[in-house]
Write a protein that binds this DNA or RNA. Structure first.
Lengths: 196, 196, 196, 196
DNA sequence: CATGAATGAGAATTCATTCAT
DNA sequence: AATGAATGAATTCTCATTCAT
């Protein structure tokens, strides 16, 4: 868990430490509510060091966002194999979301909270959009196969992701635990909502 | 629309103007990203005037939150009449949410975005909790009547509200329009997810 | 006690209330540390009302200072009668100071604390100077009569007044009580310092 | 002169510059009448730099007070040697005061003006009290030896210190110069007041 | 006359960023 | 490369003063 921000190749563990510290603090205190020196302290580096890796606080925020989004996308894509039925593919997606949010709760929360943050740049938004498009493809496939109900894929995606996000948020608020069995049960409910 | 922040009784319209300006700006730029003078400017008052109505920026944020939450609760409660079947009650709830988010998009977004903001005080959290509790009651009634599926009410609520919030967010992101017919259709889908 | 700020003629009890409130608050919180609305509140008048009686905060401060200084001078002068021996005149002066500080502790403290305050205007300084000059005359008379030791009158005045002020300050700090008997005793000591 | 605020050990000279600037400005304009940026300007540092050395304006004021008080106490204590007669000890004390006020007029004025300032914290008051206690001991010794007149030591201290403070104030107001010969003369007068 | 809500300049304090070491 | 002291612009909040009522 929390390995999400490891850059490919042994770039630098300072860079990772900064990204991790920023992720945690931006969740705890919001982007604007987090002083850079605090990020440096949590990362165990000097304040000036952050600026060797990131041009500005905004650049750091975008780097965190893209790292999280990319990691989520990787995890969802990994679970997709050719030849899955729509029902199996939905299960793969749903469990991929769950495993990601379980293993990287901070990253998941960050993506949700900072989804439309005003500091996000074009590249971050494009990263976000790319993932949406690939999920859309999945839905269209399921609709073509007659397994998913008709209608705007964006609507179905909004409802299913929204339901999952709602579950994660409320479980993190302490209302219930998202155990294996609960996750399996709610997957079934979500599927009832989406199937043709 | 946007009348949500009107306090009962002929309270000063400056207070309302400040609440409205803060609501909009906290949505647009986040709480910490919004300077008080900007709130004052948007409200058409002097910077010092805000502090005649609110003790601090935090107090202003809490006042906005409570005003929105109270307005939402009022709208949902109003639609509830005795003698509704669970299905009718769910429709009332769902449409209440929709009408609120349609008529007060800023208030709805604020509640969603600032739901667990670090500046919220005990009273704001209590206001939030009170609403959750009354929705829980609704779910338990439906379960007793055999209309809603069994399980932790919090889980069902998280999924249904989550789905609705997902719809509103994505429609506001411009992916689709939440028209009457779409709302009716998705209500049906949500009900499929919840019914026994 | 505390009647010091009563202007001659029935000017206005609001004016007096403002002067009294300002005197107390300037002592408690310093001139710059006292907001005008607080003065208004303590005086039981509206904030704007102060400006009907005084042009500005500085003007109010100067009015307080002059009222206190004038009252002190009046009290000291009253005790002076022709035909007193230097020793008797010193007693009159010393007891005059004591009675004033006992009956108007706030006024006495104000005069001491704000003696060289940066907001004092020329007239206030002149009022202060006038009193010094008349005390100087007293000293010179005593010196001519061979009762007071020779030397710069200002030096003797500085020491005697300084000693008295020291007594009042420390008694107000709670180190001892300035009772009749103590005052009589210290008067004797001060006289030992001054006599030829 | 003015070396009073030099902290022992090679502490940053920025800290000293800030203390010195604050001392001067608080004297000239009062504590509440002095904006922090003005302190920074006079100290030749950035406004934010002050807060690297002092938590708040109040903390700065207390640091100035304690530095002055400690320096005065050090100077008085240094002049005390065992085996002095009460008369010699009084001379040591009196001259210690004089040398301190001559060499550090700003520090002396600050101690006098801000002696009971509302921003002083418990530690500052304790520092102040400690010095009073040690002077009290001196007086009691003199009384036991039959050299100083009987009575509450606090009363004698109040008169003697008050007289000295009066001299310094009036000399600084320009009424006379506190030359060596004047100081010697007034010391004699003060002794006449105190001796048995 | 009296009021006190309203104002905006100015106060204390914070923080993104730089740069000497 | 790394640091963290230093900076000053920007932020939150205060308050002397005004003016509509």
């Amino acid at each position: 868990m929390g390995v999400v921000l490891r850059s490919p190749g042994a770039v630098s563990d300072k860079r990772e430490a900064i990204l991790t510290a920023a992720l945690e603090l931006f969740n705890e205190r919001s982007f604007n509510g987090t002083p850079m020196p605090l990020v440096a302290q949590r990362a165990g580096v000097g304040a000036g060091t952050i600026y060797r890796y990131f041009d500005s606080k905004e650049a750091l925020g975008n780097a965190v966002f893209r790292a999280c989004k990319t990691a989520l996308q990787r995890q969802l894509v990994e679970r997709w194999r050719a030849g899955l039925t729509p029902r199996e593919a939905f299960r793969a997606l749903w469990r991929g979301l769950w495993e990601f949010s379980r293993d990287n709760p901070a990253a998941f929360q960050f993506l949700e909270t900072h989804n439309h943050a005003s500091y996000l740049d074009a590249e971050s938004i494009a990263t976000s959009e790319a993932m949406f498009v690939s999920i859309c493809d999945f839905v269209r496939h399921g609709q073509s196969a007659g397994a998913l109900r008709d209608g705007d894929p964006a609507v179905l995606i909004a409802m299913a992701f929204g339901a999952f996000i709602g579950l994660v948020k409320e479980s993190e608020a302490g209302r219930f635990a998202l155990t294996e069995s609960v996750v399996a049960a709610v997957e079934e409910l979500a599927w009832k909502m989406l199937r043709a």
